[in-house]
């Protein structure tokens, strides 16, 4: 049965300009997001505001009755405290060195483990192992069983080749911490970069080989440019964790000797839970936040570009 258009257009509800919001914007969908977003919002904003609030107050947990507004007192006190500058410097050193070691070595190892060799699967699992060791265990094991100048394994190795063992935590405490953290995080860098290397199109590598590229040229012109995104991601994730390194220092050096291995995290812990100075700890906390945000600004920008949301 065929009906003309004229007939069809009779008895039609007239078009209206106003439209109900479509159902996907509806309360239903919004309510799916709200719990997670508000939880994260509260988690990220309330403590931050409190930290800012405390940073202007005189507040020591040991003297709970002597509280009050202190203006910039905490800031003046902390910013003139030489330990802050040292802690910032240690933090930068720690983050920078571990990043350099893990990314540099990680790239080389990623290329190595991308090759065909016997037992590759198992070897890869072995390389990965340190990443899953809880930080307190790795730190304790390195401190007592590997780096101990007397009966540690490293001391034994050095003695056997005729060298004098190093008293790691006495002479180079920060270096020792850097080694431990780098050992923990190298697997992550290797794994990430290896994943990236493997996602490289095999035909592109073959084409380059046909064009006469040797191993060096292959790395320089084909693999390295391909890794940019993975390196950016690895740098960002690692920075997040390295800025907050705490347990490794807590169980090995407790920030010492003196302040030699105190980073910002540990400085805040010292202020807050060893000296009970809430105001001072809060100022140091803000310094850490500012530092993290400077870093984040660079990282997020490069990351947002890669984001396919």
């Amino acid at each position: 049965m065929i009906i003309s258009d004229q007939e069809l257009s009779q008895n039609v509800v007239p078009a209206t300009a106003t439209r109900r919001k479509s159902w996907r914007d509806s309360v239903g969908v919004l309510s799916l997001k709200t719990p997670a977003i508000s939880a994260l919002f509260i988690w990220s904003i309330i403590p931050l505001l409190m930290t800012i609030w405390f940073s202007f107050r005189r507040y020591n947990l040991m003297a709970p009755d002597r509280t009050g507004f202190d203006g910039l007192g905490n800031y003046r006190y902390l910013l003139t405290d030489p330990s802050l500058a040292l802690a910032i410097w240690n933090t930068v050193l720690l983050v920078g060195s571990v990043l350099a070691i893990t990314i540099g070595l990680g790239t080389l190892l990623a290329v190595l483990f991308d090759q065909e060799f016997f037992g590759r699967g198992i070897a890869r699992l072995l390389v990965l192992a340190p990443f899953f060791i809880m930080p307190t265990v790795s730190a304790l094991v390195w401190k007592n069983m590997l780096m101990n100048p007397d009966n540690g394994f490293l001391a034994f190795t050095m003695r056997s080749v005729g060298l004098k063992p190093i008293n790691w935590f006495g002479v180079a405490p920060l270096t020792a911490v850097i080694i431990i953290v780098a050992w923990q995080w190298l697997p992550f860098a290797v794994l990430t970069l290896l994943t990236a290397v493997q996602s490289l199109d095999g035909e592109r590598k073959e084409a380059a080989r046909m064009d006469g590229a040797g191993p060096i040229a292959m790395f320089r012109y084909i693999i390295w440019p391909h890794l940019g995104r993975a390196i950016a991601a690895t740098t960002m994730i690692e920075s997040i964790f390295f800025l907050a390194i705490f347990a490794e220092i807590y169980v090995t050096t407790s920030g010492g000797p003196g302040f030699a291995s105190t980073n910002l995290s540990f400085l805040i812990y010292r202020y807050a839970l060893m000296e009970y100075d809430v105001g001072g700890a809060s100022v140091a906390g803000l310094v850490a936040i500012v530092l993290a945000n400077i870093l984040a600004l660079f990282l997020m920008r490069s990351f947002a570009r890669n984001l396919d949301a």
């Binding site: 069809l8 009779q10 008895n11 039609v12 509800v13 078009a15 439209r19 109900r20 479509s22 996907r24």
Partner: peptide, 17 residues
């Protein structure tokens, strides 16, 4: 997909919403 403007009629009934 949501219609940006105009009308959709299914069996003469407006069906946009």
């Amino acid at each position: 997909e949501e219609i940006t403007s105009g009308d959709l009629l299914i069996d003469h009934q407006r069906a946009n919403d």
